[in-house]
């Protein structure tokens, strides 16, 4: 999916998947922090929005 979105011209930073168990609170926090950092770097997405 990530590869495919990248192929269609979406920035790979915007799409994340991770396996996190209900007991892995710290892992969840780490992943979310990383997602936010990555998305901040590429800035707001206009693709799929302005396209409407």
């Amino acid at each position: 999916m990530k590869n495919f979105l990248e192929y269609l011209g979406f920035e790979p930073e915007r799409y994340h998947t991770a396996w996190i168990s209900g007991s892995e609170g710290q892992k969840f926090a780490d992943v979310v922090t990383r997602v936010v950092e990555d998305v901040r770097q590429v800035g707001p997405s206009r693709k799929m929005r302005d396209a409407r």
Partner: peptide, 8 residues
């Protein structure tokens, strides 16, 4: 990336 988006 930008070229691909434009293409599709």
């Amino acid at each position: 990336t930008a070229e691909r988006y434009q293409f599709f």
